[in-house]
């Protein structure tokens, strides 16, 4: 083991001293299959998202009036059906978790210090929680007639 220090930061972790632990020594040995499941989840959710996202795009843009038909009433109409509620919920959760897991690996790959990792991952998970809770809430508590003067078909019929 060398006792030299290299100031070149591009050269990987610096071995500073014989007495200090080598930065290459694996800090922890992980138990369990978390990384295995996360790897599998990325593949499975990726395939599923292809179907969900392109199905979503097709229904919104290719059928009916296309892009011109997408407005508040269109979304209200879609979410009155449990099928589209479930579709959008699944899409939201899978896309969010897929993205979060991807960014988590990027953080693992590019940050150099554990403290930086902790801060970035905390921010990441908090933002994901916010998006998923808010999104789920909107999908299930969505009220098309929230405006009392609404002229929507579903509301005027009451």
């Amino acid at each position: 083991m060398s006792t030299t220090t290299s100031a070149d930061s591009n050269r990987g972790p610096v071995v500073t001293d014989l007495t200090t632990k080598s930065p290459y020594e694996r800090r922890t040995h992980s138990r369990g299959n978390f990384e295995l499941w996360s790897w599998l989840f990325m593949r499975a959710s990726g395939v599923l998202l292809l179907v969900l996202v392109f199905g979503h795009l097709f229904v919104n843009l290719m059928t009916g009036d296309g892009i011109k038909g997408v407005d508040f009433a269109f979304v209200a109409g879609k979410w009155s059906s449990p099928f589209w509620q479930f579709w959008d919920l699944l899409m939201l959760w899978l896309a969010e978790l897929h993205g979060v897991n991807g960014v988590r690996t990027i953080i693992n790959d590019y940050t150099e210090r554990d403290s930086t990792r902790l801060v970035l991952k905390t921010l990441l998970f908090l933002s994901a929680l916010l998006v998923m809770v808010l999104g789920t809430l909107v999908i299930f508590t969505f009220d098309p007639c929230i405006d009392p003067n609404s002229t929507l078909q579903q509301c005027t019929g009451r």
Binding site: S2, T4, S6, D8, R11, P13, V15
Partner: peptide
């Protein structure tokens, strides 16, 4: 240049110990 990611000892020589570990 020396190979990347391992500590350079001198010129093109790097410490291969982490690799062999």
């Amino acid at each position: 240049e020396p190979i990347k990611g391992l500590p350079v000892e001198k010129d093109l020589i790097v410490d291969m110990e982490p690799f062999f570990d």
